[in-house]
Simulated assay, not measured.
Amino acid sequence: MTRISGRIVTPGAVVPGHLDLDGGRIAAIVPDDTVGDDVIVPGFVDLHCHGGGGHTFTTGSVAAAHGAAAFHLGHGTTTMLASLVSSPFELMRSATASFRPLVDEGVLAGVHFEGPYLSAVRCGAQNPAYLRDPVPAEIVELIKIGEGAVRMMTVAPELPGALEAIALLRDHGVLAAIGHTDATYDQTHAGVAAGATVATHLFNGMRPPHHREPGPVVGLLSSSVACELIADGIHLHPGMLAFAAGSVGPDRAVLITDAMDATGMPDGRYELGGQEVVVADRVARLAEGGSIAGSTLTMDVAVRNAVAAGVSLTDAARMASTTPARLLGLADRGALAPGLRADLVVLDDGLRLKHVMRAGERI
């Protein structure tokens, strides 16, 4: 039996006490007012990450995927999807086949395709050379190759064939996300009606709201979908982060990193989806055009930034762990409660990372 002490952040409260761990599971939460100032939160679940620590998921390299997953595990992400960017179909196929064993091993929770079925008008740092309208045969083949590894795909709902693609993803148990879109309010709601359940990095890569045409941002906020939020202080102003999180609540708001391989690395020149990226003072931008190109964020910093923006600690933990775990159907993790897997992150009283445990093993 292992005992971890501190202020335990459960889905509904912060409980001073001890977590008793047994065999990789949480055995009990024992209240005790005499514990110190450490904060214990559930292991983070990142739905949207392209890499980190100098390693990328976007090329389909198994070695690089191991490196990126290990880097983010060291920052508290105990469950993650490997996000690719818009690519030729051959790369999408090979990456799916390469990452499937990593999903079987538990290194990854699955694959997220951010593209290529995205709007050229709102492509951001997605490579326009690879954008195209949805192809149902491609989607079916990827799902077949993945054998459960393909967990999410981002689609712009206004494209020809997009609603059918969203319904196809839904019918195969894959999360359909709306993002990189120039859709109208009505087109956005049509995507949700077709089966979309996630908004890819809300606000970013989307037509801005207007009082006469609310567009995708208001369409998504006013729907039932889960909304990804990049809490790096760059993609979203802290006030906008707090507004969005408060609007949809912690059961729909999801903290993500959208991190690229430059995360945790020095400033300099990097590559994303065949395009050069320049990183300076934490900000990643395309060398040509200047669009923000992913982030250099880790989930521990995202939680700290969310709390600094005014999100409660319990809500931030739900946004970083509980809600994304539920979206992935992972009922064995995402919260601190007896019987669940002992994935946890210990933070100091300033919410800075001290150590990580995954399935009861200290990282």
Rank of each mutant, 00 (worst) to 15 (best):
A253C: 08
R282I: 11
C49M: 11
V155T: 10
H210C: 08
T298V: 15
T322S: 10
L221F: 00
R269M: 13
G43F: 11
R207A: 12
T188K: 07
L175E: 04
P324C: 05
I40D: 08
A293S: 13
H210K: 07
F71S: 03
T296V: 08
P128C: 03
V15W: 08
I40R: 05
T78C: 08
G76P: 01
M80K: 00
G329H: 10
V35G: 09
H235P: 09
G53M: 00
S94T: 06
A162F: 08
V155S: 05
R151W: 04
V121G: 00
T314S: 14
L21Q: 06
H72L: 05
I292G: 01
N127C: 07
V254W: 14
F71R: 05
A287C: 15
T34N: 14
V307M: 11
E361M: 10
A13Y: 06
G273Y: 00
G268L: 06
P209C: 07
I363D: 01
G23M: 12
M153I: 12
S87P: 01
A253K: 02
A64S: 13
L118S: 01
P116R: 09
H75L: 01
G249V: 12
M319T: 11
D38F: 01
L328C: 03
M260R: 06
S222G: 15
A293T: 09
R352N: 15
F203Y: 06
G195L: 14
A63W: 03
P338K: 13
H75Y: 10
A280N: 15
G106S: 05
A176L: 14
R282Q: 15
S295K: 15
I230M: 02
R207Q: 07
D332C: 03
S87T: 07
E141R: 06
K354A: 05
G205I: 15
G148N: 08
D281P: 05
G17I: 05
G60M: 05
A69V: 14
E288L: 14
